[in-house]
Design a protein around this nucleic acid. Structure first.
Lengths: 107, 107
DNA sequence: GGTTCATATGATATGTAATTCATATAAAAG
DNA sequence: CTTTTATATGAATTACATATCATATGAACC
């Protein structure tokens, strides 16, 4: 493996499952089970996604007894999401059919 | 199509070809042919990549006679690349075997 | 108008990462 | 120490974006 950090950076985030997770975590910490329920995803699907997000430093976790609480790594995720929001607003507001809705869950 | 702008944002960038193009364009504008030569990519490969970058507002273009000159859209790309550099530095310096090299072309 | 150079478009095949399913670990509780 | 709850791991299939190849458009020059 060489210096393909940029590719990994984007590839990891280019996924409905992980983005829906990030969207929920942007409102506060959550556990694997909670995410799995709210998104109607298999537990293992959420777990796989969280682990790859964690490996790249997008989320951090803390064990609480049996459960594992995940949250966004604020230093990267907050400015990143703001940057994307601004870009999306500017370039794609017109192309987006759902007015005022910044986010909609994706299968 | 619904509001999947976030997914598109990352999906478009999660690609060696487009990232190598962005890397070159970060040093200045270039044409399809120049990029194709420098990267040893098929012309159509570069063209496809540039068009999808353009559709999402990552690059802008200007026709110059027969050639088409592409450049990065500075408002989004400059802060984005800086943000990623910082994150990659912080979280992955240790995992990267090639010291001091920020970028290496990828097949 | 015909030819050449530069880029774009479209359809199919290919390659890679996510999903799924089965199972393993880990922690608490009885 | 067995059971239950919560999460993680691994292997195989599936799904989807990219690469390729063939062709089309577009601009300049004769």
């Amino acid at each position: 493996m060489i210096c393909n950090s940029y590719k990994s950076f984007f590839k990891i985030l280019a996924d409905d499952c992980k983005l829906n997770i990030i969207n929920i975590l942007s409102k506060g910490p959550s556990t694997v089970g909670e995410l799995s329920q709210r998104l109607h995803y298999e537990q293992s699907r959420v777990s796989h996604a969280l682990i790859s997000l964690k490996e790249f430093g997008f989320v951090i976790n803390k064990r609480n007894g049996k459960t594992q609480e995940y949250q966004l790594e604020p230093k990267i995720m907050i400015p990143l999401l703001r940057l994307i929001d601004e870009h999306v607003d500017k370039y794609h507001r017109s192309k987006c059919t759902c007015k005022g809705v910044r986010w909609r869950e994706m299968k």
